[in-house]
């Protein structure tokens, strides 16, 4: 499956950090109403988020000639350190911020001491 094209999309602010168990990705999505307007897709080691806004966002571009551009969708692609499957990923959306937690899948394995002689 191909990644979506970036036409008429705006890149949102985003952040990725990690703790010992997971990568935590957050994306700021003003004007996005609820989780039904958000798609999260995994393409191997790339995660792509698209989100529809409840109204068109107008942006004025200054340059050789002035033009107004309208956006109605956010799109953000982030390269992950390795390939993950969808079972490792959970998402929540509150107060206009999307949070995606990617479980690193590390299992606890107890190391035993050698028997003393």
């Amino acid at each position: 499956m191909l990644l979506g094209d970036e036409h008429n999309c705006i890149e949102p602010l985003s952040d990725i950090r990690e703790d010992s168990k997971s990568f935590i990705l957050t994306i700021d999505l003003p004007f996005v109403n609820n989780k039904n307007d958000i798609s999260i897709d995994l393409y191997g080691d790339i995660i792509e988020v698209t989100a529809k806004t409840i109204k068109n966002i107008r942006w004025e571009r200054l340059g050789g000639h002035r033009s107004t551009i309208e956006y109605h969708e956010y799109r953000k692609r982030i390269k992950l350190p390795r390939v993950f499957t969808e079972d490792s990923v959970t998402a929540s959306f509150r107060n206009g911020v999307l949070k995606i937690v990617i479980d690193k899948g590390y299992k606890k394995r107890e190391i035993k001491f050698k028997e003393e002689i």
């Binding site: 949102p12 602010l13 700021d28 003003p30 004007f31 966002i57 206009g96």
Partner: peptide, 8 residues
């Protein structure tokens, strides 16, 4: 929401 976008 408008402010969040304007100061992005």
């Amino acid at each position: 929401d408008e402010i969040r976008l304007n100061v992005k």
